[in-house]
């Protein structure tokens, strides 16, 4: 049995998705089973690796985006009784790029060395965070913005929707469509339940934003600029509606409160505190 379920989100970019899936199977295939969730892709634009197709009208028109897409895939695994076959779930957008070195083995190694880490992100060579990861290759953060996360199953189980899990609620709050601030909510829930979120330089991942910039029409999304505007506008409304926060800084302080408290209860991990 594979340890990890890798879930790749695609919308109308089969070649890019297939290249990523092929690379994962070729280099990390002994550790993972790869699933592709088609977020309302056209029937003639499906990846060879397509596992699930979100084909209801709304998904066809608007897509699913990261939050709903990952919720959909995870809830499918859950409803199919396969969720607990995996120790961890590697959630990726199809524009994620890795080198030729294995990505999952080092990430699993970090998870096994850090039993309280529930969410693990590979670092990017273009992130400032790498400056904090020189002495130690893995540290715990209260803010991680990425589209590649490895999530431990027990962590997901501690915060997931259990009663009626679906694409809107399984792990992320699907009402925040484009997802600005969504990862902060998950990180806060993690620390509130004794699970840390970490970044490691033992594995590297890069996001290739050129697809969003040059293939917006194919993905059937708004232009990069308009998408960014909506991402922020919707995310801010979501934060205000759900938490009464009028600023991203309020959200950050909320997460950091649980982060700081985590180390009060787990002083043994203080050396990983940034």
């Amino acid at each position: 049995m594979s340890h990890i379920a890798t879930i790749v989100l695609n919308r109308n970019l089969p070649d890019i998705t297939d290249a990523l899936c092929d690379r994962l199977e070729r280099i990390d295939g002994d550790l993972t089973e790869v699933f592709v969730v088609e977020a309302g892709s056209d029937d003639n634009q499906l990846s060879r690796h397509c596992t699930w197709l979100a084909d209801w009208p709304e998904a066809r028109i608007h897509g699913l985006r990261y939050q709903r897409g990952m919720n959909y895939a995870l809830s499918q695994l859950y409803n199919e009784g396969r969720f607990d076959h995996y120790d961890a779930f590697f959630l990726l957008t199809n524009d994620t790029e890795f080198g030729e070195e294995p990505i999952l083995a080092p990430l699993l190694e970090v998870l096994s060395e850090h039993p309280q880490v529930g969410l693990l992100s590979p670092c990017s060579r273009r992130w400032g965070e790498r400056m904090l990861l020189t002495e130690l290759d893995t540290r715990y953060f209260w803010y991680i913005h990425n589209t590649a996360y490895l999530l431990r199953r027990e962590f997901i189980e501690s915060i997931m929707e259990k009663e009626e899990p679906n694409h809107m609620n399984f792990l992320f709050d699907g009402s925040n469509f484009r997802g600005y601030g969504a990862e902060s909510e998950v990180i806060a829930k993690g620390y509130a339940n004794d699970w840390a979120s970490a970044i490691t330089t033992r594995a590297w991942a890069e996001e290739n934003e050129t697809h969003l910039l040059t293939k917006a029409d194919l993905i059937r999304t708004e232009t990069y600029k308009e998408n960014l505007r909506l991402y922020l506008e919707e995310g801010r409304s979501w934060m205000r509606r759900k938490y009464g926060f009028n600023s991203r800084w309020s959200m950050q302080r909320y997460v950091k409160f649980f982060y700081d408290q985590f180390f009060e209860f787990h002083p043994e991990y203080e050396r990983y505190q940034i």
Partner: peptide
């Protein structure tokens, strides 16, 4: 995110 900068949040 601003590339090569540590997010101000951190």
């Amino acid at each position: 995110r601003i590339m090569d900068e540590l997010p101000a949040e951190i």
